[in-house]
Amino acid sequence: MSLNTDFMVKVAQTAIQGVPVTLQIVLVALVISFPIGILFALIRIYRVKVLQRVVQFYVSLVRGTPIIAQILIVYSALPSLLNMIIGRAAFAINPIYYAYIVFTLNAIATLTEVFRSALQTVDKGQMEAGLMVGMQPRQTFWRIILPQALISALPNIANTTLYLIKNSSLAFIMSVKDITAIAKTEAAFNYNFLEAYLVVWVYYLIICYAAEVVFYLLERYFSKYRRPIKKTSGFNWLPFRIKQPKLERKQS
């Protein structure tokens, strides 16, 4: 097989400029969706009226539709919407902001589910113990329950990150100059498509593996107090008030 190696080196050099763009999209989406995901997960767990329906609907919608459809909707609706609000300036917006929006919206849905199941793995006894040493429910949540939930969520957060990295390769549709976009232009210019995409493939592999290593290290660092979760009692630890859920109980 005759690959044009000179061209591949050239693409490698140009496409590397897209790496920060890809990373930026992933990081911004993660950072913004993280707290919102926790909030949404809590809304689901505590079955907040109306809101929980909204969150459920949102998660199902995002999970059930291709990211490409989400991109096309946001990229077609948002500019004209902004145009109505801020006028012509809307068309001068750097498209990367649209990418931030799409991927954040997408990550929120995934992380909501991730945090929901993670919070449910924390035993309700942890909340009770916090209350009985005199801490407020809120204090117990922040200091005891959330840290434990986050650590048990790490593998799934890693998965979400991987999906984000891979999905970000579609940012070129919004004319964001990420790795894929650069490779595409180079390829079309020289008509060496395969070479260009092979190079990009390697870049994505490197980025994904790097992310996996980071999460592996995080997991190992935090695993010092992980034990196999023996008995999880679902989300019964929920007493934000003294009102107790009428769920599982033991008596003797």
């Binding site: 991987l162 891979k166 999905n167 390769s169 894929t180 990009v200 493939w201 994505y204 592999l205 994904c208």
Partner: peptide
């Protein structure tokens, strides 16, 4: 495969 974007 796990680390490969679908479009690539």
């Amino acid at each position: 495969v796990r680390a490969t974007p679908a479009i690539i």
